[in-house]
Design a protein around this nucleic acid. Structure first.
Lengths: 147, 147
DNA sequence: GCCATAAACTTGAGCAGTCAAGGAGATGGC
DNA sequence: GCCATCTCCTTGACTGCTCAAGTTTATGGC
């Protein structure tokens, strides 16, 4: 097998393990999944903590329907609210609530811890973490690191 | 956001994009998903093209029930057969059929192409692909679950 | 003003995985 | 020989996403 295919398959496997780890921590402490957290995080980075659903989908690499489905439980538990657009009745903004913002800050701390644990030990000098982030950026996507 | 968390989130996003790409190619040309292909590939590497389901699960980082569910459609379309163990009636081997082996070879060619395309261009010298594979192994290898 | 088209979103059906529970068979203490 | 316990596997109920189709609203040509 070529190195390229090997790298691709390893990526899939590494991601599955990583997601399980984050899900376990986040759901244990805050009752949300990694997907939920990612969504909230992205909202938190937007001005006013609000975005159109279609832009959220684009930013997260999901479909519009994935966003609808992901947002629903977060609205139900009061972390996100739904706001209409005055100029375009088709648009429904998703906005962080006050509670959402507070809870997000706590989740972020947990996520940071989890990420730090993943990359601790002599096997993970800081330069390698940076290198991994760089390689993945070339491969995949925009990322969320802005601000 | 820390570099570690950034790397973790990028990993998730890169994987999603990569899986979509492989799924599109593999399902278009061979009617299987990347998950199907990975399963068949692993079987193909085993002596005799057969493995116990529990070992397959372990090797792929899935649960036993994930393997049961993933194998079912492959059995239905005749790529994999189910074989009993003479000494232990609990065990059901999954084995590549002749057709399975032939089809797998074709899929492998497609997967290699797709992987090669992913990593082409001046942005991807061979050394970087190797480096990515190495970094991912540290993250997702057999020792990862850490628990 | 009216219609065709496009955009934003939701919904139904389906797929790929999880966990929890359970059946069936193997194994070891006694 | 018998029972408790363990292993292998499957199944039911669920999650979280996809695509395809449909609704509602906006927009541009005429």
């Amino acid at each position: 097998m070529s190195e390229a295919l090997d790298a691709a398959l390893r990526l899939v496997r590494a991601q599955a393990a990583l997601v399980r780890r984050f899900d376990a921590r986040l759901s244990g402490l805050h009752g949300v999944s990694l997907a939920d957290f990612t969504l909230l995080l992205r909202l938190g980075q937007a001005p006013g903590g609000r975005m159109r659903r279609v832009d959220l989908a684009e930013a997260l690499g999901l479909t519009a329907s994935g966003v609808t489905r992901g947002l629903a439980p977060l609205e139900r538990i009061g972390l996100v609210s739904r706001e209409p657009d005055a100029r375009d009745a088709r648009v429904a903004y998703a906005a962080l609530t006050g509670t959402g913002r507070r809870r997000l800050a706590e989740m972020l701390a947990t996520a940071e811890e989890t990420a730090a644990e993943l990359f601790t030990g002599p096997a993970w000098p800081a330069a390698d973490v940076a290198s991994l982030a760089g390689l993945l950026t070339r491969l995949g996507g925009t990322g969320l690191s802005g601000s």
